[in-house]
Protein backbone atom coordinates (compact mmCIF):
# COMPACT_ATOMS: atom_id res chain seq x y z
CA UNK A 1 0.00 0.00 0.00
CA UNK A 2 2.69 2.41 0.98
CA UNK A 3 4.47 1.86 -2.30
CA UNK A 4 2.14 3.56 -4.67
CA UNK A 5 1.46 6.36 -2.22
CA UNK A 6 5.18 6.86 -2.33
CA UNK A 7 4.98 7.73 -5.99
CA UNK A 8 2.62 10.55 -5.09
CA UNK A 9 5.24 11.73 -2.62
CA UNK A 10 7.69 12.12 -5.43
CA UNK A 11 5.32 13.33 -8.08
CA UNK A 12 4.10 16.20 -5.91
CA UNK A 13 7.38 17.84 -6.62
CA UNK A 14 6.62 18.95 -10.11
CA UNK A 15 3.33 20.79 -9.91
CA UNK A 16 2.52 23.54 -12.43
CA UNK A 17 4.85 26.13 -10.83
CA UNK A 18 4.68 29.70 -12.14
CA UNK A 19 8.34 30.52 -12.08
CA UNK A 20 10.83 27.54 -12.05
CA UNK A 21 9.08 24.70 -13.94
CA UNK A 22 9.09 22.00 -11.26
CA UNK A 23 8.12 24.13 -8.26
CA UNK A 24 4.84 23.31 -6.49
CA UNK A 25 2.65 26.39 -5.87
CA UNK A 26 2.89 26.19 -2.13
CA UNK A 27 6.68 26.18 -1.89
CA UNK A 28 8.77 29.34 -1.86
CA UNK A 29 11.89 28.07 -3.64
CA UNK A 30 13.17 24.86 -5.25
CA UNK A 31 15.60 24.58 -2.33
CA UNK A 32 12.73 24.53 0.17
CA UNK A 33 10.87 22.00 -1.94
CA UNK A 34 13.91 19.75 -2.29
CA UNK A 35 14.60 19.85 1.44
CA UNK A 36 10.96 19.08 2.19
CA UNK A 37 11.01 16.08 -0.15
CA UNK A 38 14.27 14.74 1.28
CA UNK A 39 13.03 15.24 4.85
CA UNK A 40 9.70 13.54 4.06
CA UNK A 41 11.55 10.68 2.37
CA UNK A 42 13.82 10.14 5.35
CA UNK A 43 10.78 10.01 7.63
CA UNK A 44 9.30 7.37 5.32
CA UNK A 45 12.57 5.40 5.39
CA UNK A 46 12.42 5.60 9.18
CA UNK A 47 8.98 3.97 9.12
CA UNK A 48 10.32 1.21 6.86
CA UNK A 49 13.19 0.58 9.28
CA UNK A 50 10.70 0.34 12.15
CA UNK A 51 8.51 -2.03 10.19
CA UNK A 52 11.41 -4.40 9.61
CA UNK A 53 12.41 -3.97 13.25
CA UNK A 54 9.39 -6.15 14.11
CA UNK A 55 10.90 -9.00 12.11
CA UNK A 56 14.37 -8.44 13.54
CA UNK A 57 12.79 -8.53 16.99
CA UNK A 58 11.06 -11.85 16.28
CA UNK A 59 14.39 -13.17 14.94
CA UNK A 60 16.32 -11.95 17.99
CA UNK A 61 13.79 -13.34 20.49
CA UNK A 62 13.62 -16.76 18.89
CA UNK A 63 17.34 -16.98 18.29
CA UNK A 64 18.10 -15.97 21.88
CA UNK A 65 15.69 -18.52 23.32
CA UNK A 66 16.08 -21.38 20.81
CA UNK A 67 19.64 -21.14 19.43
CA UNK A 68 19.62 -24.82 18.52
CA UNK A 69 16.86 -24.28 15.94
CA UNK A 70 18.88 -21.64 14.12
CA UNK A 71 22.11 -23.62 14.30
CA UNK A 72 20.33 -26.65 12.86
CA UNK A 73 18.13 -24.98 10.25
CA UNK A 74 20.52 -22.46 8.72
CA UNK A 75 22.44 -25.33 7.15
CA UNK A 76 19.53 -25.69 4.73
CA UNK A 77 20.37 -22.27 3.29
CA UNK A 78 22.90 -21.94 0.50
CA UNK A 79 25.46 -19.37 1.66
CA UNK A 80 26.93 -18.95 -1.82
CA UNK A 81 23.61 -17.93 -3.31
CA UNK A 82 23.16 -15.52 -0.40
CA UNK A 83 26.60 -13.99 -0.95
CA UNK A 84 25.97 -13.61 -4.69
CA UNK A 85 22.68 -11.94 -3.89
CA UNK A 86 24.41 -9.52 -1.54
CA UNK A 87 26.96 -8.67 -4.22
CA UNK A 88 24.18 -8.17 -6.79
CA UNK A 89 22.33 -5.79 -4.50
CA UNK A 90 25.48 -3.85 -3.63
CA UNK A 91 26.30 -3.43 -7.32
CA UNK A 92 22.78 -2.30 -8.14
CA UNK A 93 23.00 0.09 -5.20
CA UNK A 94 26.24 1.42 -6.65
CA UNK A 95 24.75 1.90 -10.12
CA UNK A 96 21.78 3.65 -8.50
CA UNK A 97 24.03 6.09 -6.63
CA UNK A 98 25.93 6.68 -9.81
CA UNK A 99 22.65 7.29 -11.67
CA UNK A 100 21.70 9.97 -9.12
CA UNK A 101 25.07 11.60 -9.73
CA UNK A 102 24.53 11.36 -13.48
CA UNK A 103 21.14 13.06 -13.11
CA UNK A 104 22.70 15.83 -11.03
CA UNK A 105 25.30 16.41 -13.72
CA UNK A 106 22.76 16.19 -16.51
CA UNK A 107 24.37 13.17 -18.27
CA UNK A 108 21.14 11.82 -19.76
CA UNK A 109 22.57 8.80 -21.59
CA UNK A 110 24.54 7.64 -18.57
CA UNK A 111 21.48 8.14 -16.35
CA UNK A 112 19.31 5.94 -18.55
CA UNK A 113 21.98 3.25 -18.83
CA UNK A 114 22.63 3.14 -15.10
CA UNK A 115 18.94 3.00 -14.21
CA UNK A 116 18.55 0.09 -16.62
CA UNK A 117 21.54 -1.62 -14.96
CA UNK A 118 20.00 -1.10 -11.52
CA UNK A 119 16.74 -2.61 -12.76
CA UNK A 120 18.70 -5.57 -14.10
CA UNK A 121 20.30 -5.98 -10.65
CA UNK A 122 16.81 -6.11 -9.16
CA UNK A 123 15.74 -8.84 -11.57
CA UNK A 124 18.94 -10.73 -10.82
CA UNK A 125 18.28 -10.59 -7.11
CA UNK A 126 14.71 -11.82 -7.50
CA UNK A 127 15.88 -14.56 -9.85
CA UNK A 128 18.28 -15.94 -7.26
CA UNK A 129 15.59 -15.59 -4.60
CA UNK A 130 13.26 -17.61 -6.83
CA UNK A 131 15.83 -20.41 -7.07
CA UNK A 132 16.19 -20.47 -3.30
CA UNK A 133 12.45 -20.46 -2.71
CA UNK A 134 11.94 -23.15 -5.34
CA UNK A 135 14.45 -25.37 -3.53
CA UNK A 136 12.73 -24.81 -0.20
CA UNK A 137 9.23 -25.38 -1.50
CA UNK A 138 10.45 -28.48 -3.22
CA UNK A 139 12.04 -29.88 -0.13
CA UNK A 140 9.12 -29.03 2.18
CA UNK A 141 11.14 -26.52 4.15
CA UNK A 142 8.06 -24.40 4.72
CA UNK A 143 6.96 -22.38 7.71
CA UNK A 144 4.61 -23.61 10.39
CA UNK A 145 2.26 -26.51 9.72
CA UNK A 146 3.54 -27.35 6.24
CA UNK A 147 7.05 -28.02 7.52
CA UNK A 148 7.80 -31.57 6.37
CA UNK A 149 11.48 -31.76 5.44
CA UNK A 150 12.46 -34.48 3.04
CA UNK A 151 16.12 -33.64 3.01
CA UNK A 152 18.79 -33.69 5.68
CA UNK A 153 20.61 -30.44 6.35
CA UNK A 154 23.63 -29.67 4.27
CA UNK A 155 22.03 -31.23 1.21
CA UNK A 156 21.60 -28.04 -0.86
CA UNK A 157 18.97 -29.17 -3.31
CA UNK A 158 21.43 -31.23 -5.35
CA UNK A 159 20.28 -34.44 -3.64
CA UNK A 160 18.24 -35.53 -6.68
CA UNK A 161 17.54 -38.96 -5.30
CA UNK A 162 15.29 -37.27 -2.83
CA UNK A 163 13.46 -35.48 -5.59
CA UNK A 164 10.76 -38.00 -6.45
CA UNK A 165 10.36 -39.18 -2.87
CA UNK A 166 10.18 -35.53 -1.85
CA UNK A 167 7.18 -34.90 -4.04
CA UNK A 168 5.35 -37.91 -2.69
CA UNK A 169 6.20 -36.89 0.87
CA UNK A 170 5.06 -33.39 0.22
CA UNK A 171 1.77 -34.41 -1.30
CA UNK A 172 0.86 -36.50 1.74
CA UNK A 173 1.99 -33.80 4.11
CA UNK A 174 -0.10 -31.40 2.09
CA UNK A 175 -3.07 -33.71 2.42
CA UNK A 176 -2.52 -34.09 6.16
CA UNK A 177 -2.22 -30.38 6.65
CA UNK A 178 -5.69 -30.30 5.14
CA UNK A 179 -5.78 -26.56 4.82
CA UNK A 180 -6.78 -26.13 1.24
CA UNK A 181 -5.49 -22.62 0.84
CA UNK A 182 -1.78 -23.37 1.28
CA UNK A 183 -0.14 -22.92 -2.10
CA UNK A 184 0.44 -26.45 -3.51
CA UNK A 185 4.21 -27.06 -3.72
CA UNK A 186 5.80 -26.70 -7.12
CA UNK A 187 3.39 -23.93 -8.08
CA UNK A 188 4.91 -20.48 -8.45
CA UNK A 189 6.25 -19.87 -4.95
CA UNK A 190 3.47 -17.84 -3.36
CA UNK A 191 5.18 -14.74 -2.01
CA UNK A 192 5.07 -15.46 1.66
CA UNK A 193 2.82 -12.66 2.77
CA UNK A 194 1.69 -10.90 -0.31
CA UNK A 195 -0.38 -7.73 0.10
CA UNK A 196 -3.01 -8.71 2.63
CA UNK A 197 -5.75 -7.10 0.58
CA UNK A 198 -5.71 -10.18 -1.61
CA UNK A 199 -5.27 -12.69 1.25
CA UNK A 200 -7.93 -15.45 1.26
CA UNK A 201 -10.83 -14.76 3.63
CA UNK A 202 -10.28 -16.03 7.14
CA UNK A 203 -10.65 -19.78 6.52
CA UNK A 204 -10.23 -21.25 9.97
CA UNK A 205 -7.28 -23.63 9.95
CA UNK A 206 -8.83 -26.71 11.55
CA UNK A 207 -7.30 -27.11 14.93
CA UNK A 208 -5.94 -30.57 15.28
CA UNK A 209 -5.24 -31.53 11.69
CA UNK A 210 -2.09 -33.54 12.03
CA UNK A 211 -0.74 -31.02 14.50
CA UNK A 212 0.54 -32.27 17.80
CA UNK A 213 -1.90 -30.78 20.30
CA UNK A 214 -0.21 -29.16 23.25
CA UNK A 215 0.18 -32.33 25.25
CA UNK A 216 -0.08 -31.31 28.84
CA UNK A 217 2.37 -32.96 31.16
CA UNK A 218 1.00 -36.10 32.76
CA UNK A 219 -1.49 -35.24 35.43
CA UNK A 220 -0.55 -38.16 37.63
CA UNK A 221 2.88 -37.08 38.84
CA UNK A 222 2.52 -34.19 41.27
CA UNK A 223 3.38 -30.90 39.56
CA UNK A 224 6.47 -30.40 41.69
CA UNK A 225 7.96 -33.55 40.19
CA UNK A 226 8.09 -32.15 36.68
CA UNK A 227 11.33 -30.42 35.77
CA UNK A 228 10.65 -26.76 35.04
CA UNK A 229 14.12 -25.87 33.97
CA UNK A 230 15.05 -25.41 30.39
CA UNK A 231 16.55 -28.88 29.86
CA UNK A 232 18.30 -29.06 26.58
CA UNK A 233 18.10 -32.85 26.46
CA UNK A 234 14.36 -32.51 26.03
CA UNK A 235 15.00 -30.15 23.16
CA UNK A 236 16.00 -32.70 20.64
CA UNK A 237 13.35 -34.96 19.13
CA UNK A 238 14.04 -38.46 18.00
CA UNK A 239 15.98 -37.60 14.81
CA UNK A 240 18.45 -35.15 16.48
CA UNK A 241 16.34 -32.41 14.96
CA UNK A 242 15.34 -29.81 17.56
CA UNK A 243 11.58 -29.31 17.76
CA UNK A 244 9.84 -26.37 16.12
CA UNK A 245 12.50 -25.99 13.44
CA UNK A 246 9.70 -24.61 11.29
CA UNK A 247 10.00 -21.41 13.36
CA UNK A 248 13.27 -20.66 11.53
CA UNK A 249 11.53 -20.97 8.20
CA UNK A 250 8.59 -18.94 9.46
CA UNK A 251 10.96 -16.09 10.26
CA UNK A 252 13.06 -16.72 7.11
CA UNK A 253 10.06 -16.49 4.79
CA UNK A 254 8.62 -13.50 6.69
CA UNK A 255 11.87 -11.53 6.40
CA UNK A 256 12.90 -12.44 2.89
CA UNK A 257 9.27 -12.34 1.70
CA UNK A 258 8.64 -8.82 2.95
CA UNK A 259 12.08 -7.77 1.69
CA UNK A 260 11.24 -9.31 -1.68
CA UNK A 261 8.03 -7.29 -1.85
CA UNK A 262 10.05 -4.15 -1.19
CA UNK A 263 12.53 -5.11 -3.93
CA UNK A 264 9.61 -5.52 -6.33
CA UNK A 265 8.21 -2.12 -5.31
CA UNK A 266 11.66 -0.55 -5.71
CA UNK A 267 11.95 -1.99 -9.21
CA UNK A 268 8.55 -0.54 -10.11
CA UNK A 269 9.72 2.91 -9.03
CA UNK A 270 13.01 2.57 -10.91
CA UNK A 271 11.10 1.58 -14.05
CA UNK A 272 8.84 4.60 -13.59
CA UNK A 273 11.83 6.93 -13.10
CA UNK A 274 13.55 5.29 -16.08
CA UNK A 275 10.57 6.08 -18.28
CA UNK A 276 10.63 9.71 -17.18
CA UNK A 277 14.38 10.02 -17.63
CA UNK A 278 14.06 8.67 -21.17
CA UNK A 279 11.59 11.52 -21.68
CA UNK A 280 14.42 13.76 -20.51
CA UNK A 281 12.64 15.26 -17.51
CA UNK A 282 15.62 15.22 -15.20
CA UNK A 283 18.59 17.52 -15.14
CA UNK A 284 20.79 19.43 -12.71
CA UNK A 285 17.96 21.74 -11.60
CA UNK A 286 15.34 18.97 -11.10
CA UNK A 287 16.24 15.39 -10.21
CA UNK A 288 14.25 14.85 -6.97
CA UNK A 289 12.39 11.67 -8.08
CA UNK A 290 15.67 9.97 -9.03
CA UNK A 291 17.18 10.94 -5.70
CA UNK A 292 14.17 9.69 -3.68
CA UNK A 293 13.92 6.39 -5.58
CA UNK A 294 17.67 6.06 -5.04
CA UNK A 295 17.19 6.50 -1.27
CA UNK A 296 14.47 3.84 -1.27
CA UNK A 297 16.66 1.41 -3.23
CA UNK A 298 19.58 1.96 -0.89
CA UNK A 299 17.31 1.25 2.08
CA UNK A 300 16.23 -2.04 0.51
CA UNK A 301 19.94 -2.86 0.08
CA UNK A 302 20.59 -1.75 3.66
CA UNK A 303 18.03 -4.21 5.03
CA UNK A 304 19.50 -7.05 2.96
CA UNK A 305 22.97 -6.16 4.32
CA UNK A 306 21.60 -7.12 7.76
CA UNK A 307 19.43 -10.02 6.58
CA UNK A 308 22.31 -11.81 4.88
CA UNK A 309 24.57 -12.41 7.90
CA UNK A 310 21.63 -13.01 10.26
CA UNK A 311 20.06 -15.72 8.12
CA UNK A 312 22.94 -17.21 6.19
CA UNK A 313 26.03 -16.83 8.36
CA UNK A 314 24.81 -18.33 11.63
CA UNK A 315 27.69 -19.83 13.49
Amino acid sequence: MAEETLTTAQSHGHGHGEHPPHLAHHFESPGQQFDACKFGMWIFLCTEVLMFSGLFCAYAVYRANHPEIFLYAHKYLDTNLGAINTAVLICSSFTMAWAVRAAQKGQQGLLIGLLALTLLGGFGFLGIKYIEYEHKFHKGLLPGAQYNPTVTPGDHGNGDKHAEMGDHELITSEHDAGNAHTAPPGAAPARHDEEPAVAPTGVKPTEQTGLEKTTLPQAAPPPAGRSMEHDHAHEHGMTGRPNNVHLFFGIYFAMTGLHGIHVLAGMAFIAWVLKRSIAGEFGPEYFTPVDLVGLYWHLVDLIWIFLFPLLYLIH
Binding site: E212, H230, G237
Partner: peptide
Protein backbone atom coordinates in the same frame (compact mmCIF):
# COMPACT_ATOMS: atom_id res chain seq x y z
CA UNK B 1 11.80 -18.56 29.30
CA UNK B 2 12.12 -21.17 32.13
CA UNK B 3 8.33 -21.32 32.36
CA UNK B 4 7.82 -22.22 28.71
CA UNK B 5 6.69 -25.83 28.13
CA UNK B 6 8.63 -27.69 25.44
CA UNK B 7 6.26 -30.03 23.63
CA UNK B 8 7.51 -33.10 21.81
CA UNK B 9 9.04 -32.41 18.43
CA UNK B 10 6.38 -31.53 15.88
CA UNK B 11 7.79 -33.99 13.36
CA UNK B 12 7.70 -37.10 15.52
CA UNK B 13 3.96 -37.50 16.14
CA UNK B 14 3.79 -39.39 19.43
Amino acid sequence: QPDVIHQEALESLP
